[in-house]
């Protein structure tokens, strides 16, 4: 193989993407966990951790540009590197969603209000699991697996709708907690969007493998957001 340097650099980059992915995954799970425990200091830690995620994303982007500039990748290599760029941006966004949840935890302080915690936890677990497997499919350029993962987004959407209805019901019952309950809508929204971001990563996996670039068909998540 005459392109050992490029191959090595791509492998290193993929390892780093996995590392970034696990940071993001952890942040997402932790955020929901802090919400459950209402642990403000832990939430502040997540807040701080997001800076590390952002820095890593920029470091990876920089490394990626250098590989493109020095190795002039073509065809599959080019598609892969372009997809890595897209993927790290998506990962950073998911990190931002975790940060948003942590922010909600801090804003809520010690106010007592009923939360659809079971849905939140399930959504977080589902999104984290999708993210985990999506990255694995991404590294392995496994288009079939990626397509399967996209279908799971429907389950997250369903959970989102459940949580949303529960929060709205609470608000109707106790109009005085509308401000705080509104924050919970944000939590649900963030978790739902995180899963959407995962489907974008899956789209990139299909692009690497097939060279085809299009929106993978789901039960269109954009509508369910409202």
């Amino acid at each position: 193989m005459p392109r050992e340097t490029l191959d090595r650099q791509i492998h290193q980059l993929q390892d780093e993407v996995l590392l970034l992915g696990s940071m993001v995954e952890q942040a997402l799970l932790n955020a929901v966990d802090t919400l459950k425990r209402r642990d403000i200091s832990a939430a502040q830690k997540i807040f701080a951790n997001d800076i590390a995620i952002n820095e890593k994303r920029y470091a990876l982007e920089n490394a990626l540009i250098i590989i493109i500039a020095t190795q002039q990748p073509m065809a599959r290599d080019l598609r892969l590197l372009a997809s890595v760029l897209e993927t790290i941006i998506e990962l950073e966004r998911i990190g931002d969603y975790a940060k948003g949840i942590a922010k909600v935890v801090i804003r809520l302080g010690d106010s007592t209000l009923p939360m659809p915690m079971r849905e939140f936890s399930q959504m977080a677990e589902q999104a984290a699991s999708m993210l985990h497997r999506a990255l694995s499919a991404f590294i392995n350029e496994d288009a079939a697996k990626a397509r399967e993962i996209v279908l799971e987004d429907d389950q997250v959407d369903e959970l989102y709708n459940k949580a949303y209805r529960a929060i709205v019901t609470t608000m109707i019952a106790n109009p005085e907690i509308i401000d705080d309950a509104n924050l919970l809508v944000w939590v649900a929204h963030n978790l739902e969007r995180a899963a959407d971001r995962v489907t974008n990563i899956c789209e990139r996996t299909v692009y690497i493998a097939t060279g085809e670039l299009f929106e993978l068909d789901t039960d269109d998540s954009e509508e369910t957001a409202y």
Binding site: R3, M74, A75, D77, L78, G211
Partner: peptide
Amino acid sequence: IFTNPRDQRTEDYITGRFG
């Protein structure tokens, strides 16, 4: 050809993995 070649031999050549 340069972003999404259909043939594996083209792919190998274009990405520099020929031979």
